[in-house]
Every structure is written in structure tokens, then in C-alpha cells.
Design a protein around this nucleic acid. Structure first.
Lengths: 203, 203, 203, 203
DNA sequence: AATGAATGAGGTTTCATTCAT
DNA sequence: GATGAATGAAACCTCATTCAT
């Protein structure tokens, strides 16, 4: 039955969307499963037909969001040839995504970390894949002589992500920030592009 | 009574030290107040003679640690004249501190964020003071013409902190990291020093 | 429709047989209706076309099993003239039945009692009928002067059943009992035959 | 502190007594921990200062009751020389105990069995000790030539207990039984004494 | 008749906090 | 000041049962 599968996907999405709203609003820990159920307009028990546990909802939000972000980031940098300009494109994509999916971003950045179980035991392979888009650009830049050879891409990619993430978290937590996310993305991109660039490649 | 006040400070410290160990070990949420009490060798109720609540212990750890870090960072950069080299000194100090006070660092970086109550309602003024050491150096650099004038110090200081923080968190969560914290500090300092420097100031 | 009625009986039996297996395996309380449904290869809802509730399945197992046991016991003693020897025949039949229908016996003896609702509210008339086979033999023995007149058949029949039942339960719960059920049946029969017999009837 | 230990024992007993009443009344499964707490006039959480779990309460009732029964039964038969008369003393003691501690008896006989976990995994060593009082008397009788040598004491002791237990359960479940427990005890004792006695020992 | 997705009530246990001693 | 026994609120998840298809 085609329709049954579609209905099943719909209900799963219904619950996930409701969960994002509820978790972003009250925080994961303070949200009760029944809050999510009410927001999704299903019975409490229905949640458990689609998810193994409350934690599983959070993990599912993370995995789906990360997959979208990985796909989106890859698309965003696909047509940019200069490796360093790819970092700028990545930064702008990341911040746009945070701005447009504020609820999801909030859950990812604020609520997800609450579970150190999650951060520790469930190794977020997807996060590494996301980081690796940055790392690959840096390594590519080194191969082309555009990036200083002494840069450690493993460190640099995480530093870049950390810079973006910290700014994003601040923006999420503070309703009225003094600076826009796009401006921040540009500033961070500038800092890293200049910081990574090999002296010989400067004009 | 001088002695009584000293004794009181001692017990308070006893509890705080025990709490750092316990929270770093099991995580804040999974730690029970009675765990802290046992580790501090006091009765459960005694905790409440020194702290308003379990959260208050966490906040106190944060505030005391931040004050030490602020003092330490200021001392570390005090004799460095070049504003950009102050960033390097700050980065090295920060990472050394994380390495030496791993327990405290873990509580601050991993456990503190779990309480979005904390991050939202209790505005961490101390964190801003810490960040401001970086911001002041950047602003100073701009005043001296060493840092590009278009850099927004508010953004840059947080980006710098985010980069350090992300690396530090990674190091805390993974026992066997592939790179040392000092190396990371140097790399991040290099990136930001080069990224911030005004073209005219290059030699 | 003859065939429809037969099919209906078949499915009912299918479900009952599956329920005996499942209940004997996991216990009544730990068994889910969906477990029974899966074992019977029907949908969950189908169960409720044949049984009012989960309890009703248990009661039905009991009633059908008791009816078979009543019929079997009556057949087993039918050709035994001596009332006291009928007790021996009854004991042997009972234990053989337990041995051959271990699953059913387990459900009856172990799982049935878990519901004091059952034991209290639903008066098991069938059990009384089964007990009465014993009681009738004792009363007959008294009428013929073979059994002591001061024996209260109501008490004696239940004592006899209790003795058999306790041994059977032990055997069911312990996979490797030190004595066989037939040996136990003989021993219990001996005890009661001698215990009931009127002094004047001894040779 | 002597008083503290005494108070602790008192509260434990308070809870156990309340639990017996509640479990006997509503059954173990239908009883909520909060029902027991209310009956014991303590808070729900207090229960868990004295017992590991709801099951642990049941097990504790069993163990304490069995210990009392073992002690009581041993005292009851202590001064009876004739092994067979010890069985009568045992039967009378058992039934008197059931009658006087109806609540406890009900919990033991009806509610305990609901947990086949209990009957299976937690091997009731105490029950065996209780049964062994009967078994020892029978074996003693055989040694003295008073009991038929072909009797298997392991089977006979359990048969004797089963007979008593079945009658007791019936009496517990039916408020208005047609026969008294003492009468039943006498009848069962008569049956077994005569059933066990060696022919040569009859006078 | 048969299905199986959806329902929603229900209860044990933990643990931060209090307060009589 | 110090104790620690007592409190009691709070929520996840299971599973018997229903009913639209």
C-alpha cells in the first residue's frame, strides 16, 4: 500500500516537527512526551509507534537536520572553485540555515549538548561529515598552494566550525543581537580566509 | 570571629572541590546532591547551608573558575605589548588552563550548557569579562593600526573564543585526541593573528 | 453455513493453542495480546472477535481444559469398582495429564492463580465438578462401609486434590525433579487410600 | 543511638504491617505503593528508605512470616514425642496461624504466587525449611518403625503441605466456609497419620 | 470476517530540598 | 552549625482495547 507508507511518513514528520517546536520552546528536559504528542495532535502512545524513546526523537531530529545541512552545504560550495571562497560560501550557508531553521538550530545547538550521553557514546558521525566539507576545502587549498602548508586541517576545520557555532549559539540565545548572522559569517570567513592563505598566493 | 569565617570558607571550598570532581565524573544531571555530600564528607543538609540549590553549586563553580581564568589571562598578557601577540598568549593560557584543570574545564564546558536555564536566564557576566580581554586586545590593535579597521571586535572576540572552546571541548570529550592542546592554541593564534592583521602592518 | 462455523471453531482453537504456548512460556502477565496474535498468525484485533478480553482467553483455556479433565477422569475411573481404587486411578490420570499437557497444566496451575480476580469473582464451577469426582468416590466408599464414616468428604476431596496439585506444581516449576509424577501419584494414592479406609474393611 | 535504631525498626514494621493489610485487601498487583504509604502514614518515598522495590516488600513479608512460622511450628511440635502426632500438632499450628494471621496468610498464599518470578528465580529456601519440619517427623517415624518404610518423605511432606495449603486457600478465599480450619486440620492429620502408619505399629 | 494503527490511562521510583533534633 | 530521615512531586512508557477501513 503506497498510501499507508505515505501516511506513516507523514505522521513521523508531524511528530518530528512538533518536537522541534516544543523542544526549542521549553528545552528538551522540560518538555514532556505528552507535550510533543499534544502539539503533534496524536496520542502519547502513538509517539512510540514511530520512535523508540524520547531520546530517539532528539537523535532523529539531529540526524535528519545534519543530513539536510550536509546536502545543503555541499550544494552551496559546489560551484565555487576557489577553496578559500568555499569557506565563505560554507559560512554563509551555515548562518542562513541557522536563521531560517531557528527552531531546529536551537535544538541542535542548545538542547543536544545537554545529553553528554549523546555527545560521548553516540558518536556523531554526521557532524564529522559536515566538518569534513570544511576540512576538504582547506586540504584542497593546501594542495593548490593557496593555504599555508603548516596549517593542520583537522584543527582548522574545527576552529572554523567552533567560531561559527559560538556566534550562532549567541544569536539563538539572545533575541536581539547587535549584529546580523550574515555579517558575522562574512567576518568569520574573512578572518579564516586571510588566516589560512599562503603568503605566496597573496596579490 | 576570624576563625569561624575561615572554617566556613573551608567547608564551602570542600564542597565546591568535591562537586567539581563528582560533576566531571558523572555529569551534572546524573550527580546527586548526596553524591557531592559524600565526596565532601558532609551531610546532605549541610550543602544547603552554603548553597541555595544544586544549580547554585554549578553557578558558583562557574563564577569562581571564571574569576581565576580572568585573573590568570590578564596576568598572562600583562607583559605582552603587541596586541596580536596577546591573543597568542591568551590562547596558550586558555588551553594550559583546560589541560591543568581538566575537571573544572569539563564542568564548565560540558555540564554548564546542559542547563539552558543557566545560559539564558543567568547572564554570564564573567564570560563577557573574559571575552573582553580578547576584545580589548583587538580594539587596541585597531587603535594602533595593527588590526584591520573593518573587523568587528565583538564578533571577532567571540569567534576566537568559539574556536578555542570547540577544540577544548573535543579534547575533553575524547581521551585520546590526535593533537595536543598547545599545538591547537598555536594554530588558532596563527589563524587569528594573520586574519586580523592590517595589510599595512605586515613586514 | 456448516463450513463457516467450522472455520470459526478452527480459528478460536488456533488462538487458544497459541495462547497456551505463549502463556506457558512467558507467563500470563508478561504475555502481550499481540504475542498471542503473532503466535496464532492472526491480527491483534481478530482476538477480540473470539474473546472478550485477555482474561477471557485464560478463562476459556481453563474451562476447556477442565472439561477435558473431567471427561478424562470420569473415563479413567469408570470401570473401577472399588471406590478407593478409583482414587488411585484418579491420581494417576491427573498426573499423566499434567505430564502430557505440560503447557496447559502450567497455565492452569501457575498462571491462573495470579489473578485473584479469577479465583474470587469467577467461581470455578468446573473445578468443583472435578473435585466432586473424588468426593463422590469417597461418599460411595462411606455408603459401602469402606471409608471411615467420620471423614468429611468435602474436606477430604480437597485435601486429596491439594496434595496432587502441590506435587504437580513443584514438578512444573522444577525442570529436573527428583521423583516422577507416576511415583508421586502412587504414593499419594497409597496415603489417602490407607488414610480413608475404615478399620473394619481392612483384611 | 539506640533510639534511632528502634525507630527505624518501628517504621519498617509500620510499613510491612500496612502492606499486609493493603495487599490482602486489594491484591498485590492492584495495590499501588502510594496505597501502602498512605496506610502506613508515611510518604511514598519513605518506603524506599526501607525497601528496594515494591517486590522487595512482598519478599520481606514472606521471609518474616516464614521465619515466624518455622519458629512457631518447631515450638508447637517440640514437646510431642510421637512423630505422627507431631504431624497433627503441625497441622493444627498451621491452621491456627492461618486463622489468626489471615492477612499475612492471604498475602502468602494468594498474592505471592502471582509472581512466578518469585516462585521460580527466588528459590524459597524458607518454604523448604518449613516443609522439612514435616519431612523430619516422617523420617523419624520411619527410623522408629512407626511409618511405612516405602513412603518417600520428600513426596509425603509436600503432599501433606499441599493438602493443608489447599484447604487454607479455600478458607481464605471464601468468607463463609462450611467447615472450620481446626476441623480440617484434624481431618487432614487423621488421613496422613493413618496413611503413613506402618501396619505393625497399629494397636 | 479480518486487519493493525491509534489510543490513553496508569504507576513505580528518584532525588532535590526541608526541618526537627 | 551540622545532621540525615522524611518528604512528595513529577514523567516515561506499555499494552489492552477499539474501530475505520
Amino acid at each position: 500500500m503506497e498510501a499507508a507508507a505515505a501516511r506513516k511518513r507523514d505522521k513521523r514528520r508531524q511528530i518530528l516537527d512538533a518536537a522541534v517546536t516544543v523542544f526549542a520552546d521549553r528545552g528538551f528536559h522540560k518538555s514532556r512526551v505528552s507535550d510533543v504528542a499534544r502539539a503533534a495532535e496524536v496520542a502519547d502512545g502513538t509517539i512510540y509507534l514511530y520512535f523508540k524513546s524520547k531520546d530517539d526523537i532528539l537523535i532523529s531530529i539531529f540526524e535528519e537536520a545534519m543530513q539536510e545541512m550536509i546536502d545543503g552545504a555541499q550544494a552551496a560550495i559546489a560551484e565555487v572553485d576557489d577553496p578559500l571562497e568555499r569557506l565563505r560560501a560554507f559560512a554563509l550557508f551555515h548562518m542562513d540555515n541557522v536563521e531560517q531553521e531557528r527552531g531546529v538550530a536551537k535544538v541542535l545547538q542548545v538542547e543536544l549538548r545537554l545529553s553528554n550521553t549523546f555527545m560521548k557514546e553516540y558518536k556523531p558521525a554526521a557532524l564529522v561529515a559536515y566538518l569534513n566539507i570544511v576540512g576538504a576545502a582547506i586540504a584542497d587549498g593546501q594542495a593548490r598552494g593557496l593555504v599555508r602548508p603548516e596549517v593542520n586541517p583537522i584543527i582548522a576545520r574545527r576552529a572554523f566550525f567552533g567560531a561559527l557555532d559560538e556566534i550562532a549559539m549567541q544569536w539563538i540565545l539572545t533575541p536581539n543581537a547587535r549584529y546580523g548572522l550574515r555579517e558575522s559569517a562574512e567576518q568569520i570567513a574573512d578572518l579564516f580566509v586571510r588566516g589560512l592563505r599562503a603568503a605566496s598566493s597573496q596579490n
